[in-house]
């Protein structure tokens, strides 16, 4: 584990050189939140009105949380990096090091995005508090649970993106698959909670990555209960295992057919 903490730390140290770049990229995040604040302000006539069980304040906080989790991890950049590693043969030079490539990629990218996640949280919470003038009433244990659920969501997301990236072992370029995945997460996960979708679709979504990567932690943040937190955390742990297993299998298979010439 120490080596992965070191990989995380080394990438984090490298990112300090680009704090200004990160701040510039936050403009997108601020615009996104601002647009959805106005949209929900427009949709909700009455601030106390409930749509599909959510008040206006809850809906805006929901979008802030999902956007922090999804937007800050920079999935497209991460997927492209893995695809490039596989296609460009870079992965070959990491294979003979005593670490797992999957662990290396995930911990490295976490290190790269930590500052962005922290800044997004600060900006998102500040915007929420300023414009909504409220903050969900969470007890200290609830805050810890939501935080853990958020971290699990980020980890599952990164593993699923790793898996998509590693599909490049089979189909040359898996970036288009990531594009489909990201649009699905954006439309069905980031913007609206599961309760907004019709019966069958909502049921399917409960078993999909959307439930564990977006909906779960955001739902706990806006409407916390120990019952739902147990359900969400359990699903996240199962998904984490599945996602890791998928990455492990495709990596193992891919490395065997690695085709790197040179020299």
């Amino acid at each position: 584990m120490r080596k992965y903490i070191y990989i995380y730390k080394s990438e984090l140290m490298s990112t300090f050189q680009y704090v200004i770049n990160i701040l510039f990229r936050l403009i997108n995040f601020i615009l996104f939140i601002f647009i959805f604040m106005n949209l929900w302000n427009y949709i909700y006539d009455n601030p106390n009105e409930l749509i599909n069980g959510y008040s206006k304040t809850q809906m805006i906080w929901y979008v802030i949380i999902t956007e922090i989790i999804w937007g800050a991890i920079e999935g497209r950049k991460y997927c492209r990096k893995i695809v490039d590693d596989v296609r460009g043969g870079n992965i070959a030079y990491m294979i003979n090091k005593p670490y797992s490539y999957i662990g290396y990629a995930v911990s490295g990218h976490l290190g790269e995005t930590t500052i962005r996640i922290i800044i997004s949280m600060v900006v998102g919470f500040t915007m929420g508090i300023i414009f909504l003038k409220s903050f969900p009433a969470l007890t200290a244990p609830a805050v810890i649970i939501v935080f853990i659920s958020g971290i699990l969501a980020v980890l599952i997301n990164l593993l699923l993106i790793t898996f998509i990236g590693l599909i490049s072992f089979i189909i040359e370029d898996s970036n288009p698959i990531f594009w489909l995945y990201s649009k699905m997460i954006l439309v069905l996960g980031v913007l609206f909670p599961i309760e907004y979708f019709p019966g069958i679709l909502a049921k399917i979504m409960r078993y999909s990555p959307i439930y564990v990567t977006c909906y779960g932690p955001a739902k706990l943040f806006v409407d916390f209960s120990y019952m739902s937190s147990a359900e969400i955390l359990l699903s996240q742990i199962i998904y984490l295992g599945i996602a890791w297993g998928m990455c492990y299998l495709i990596y193992k298979k891919g490395v065997k057919k690695l085709n790197v010439t040179g020299g």
């Binding site: 070959a92 030079y93 294979i95 003979n96 065997k256 690695l258 790197v260 010439t261 040179g262 020299g263």
Partner: peptide, 18 residues
């Protein structure tokens, strides 16, 4: 010379290639 098989051999010796 280039393409003779040097790097492929090294990659097999270091476990990179099967």
């Amino acid at each position: 010379p280039n393409g003779a098989g040097k790097s492929t051999t090294i990659k097999m010796l270091t476990g990179i290639l099967y």
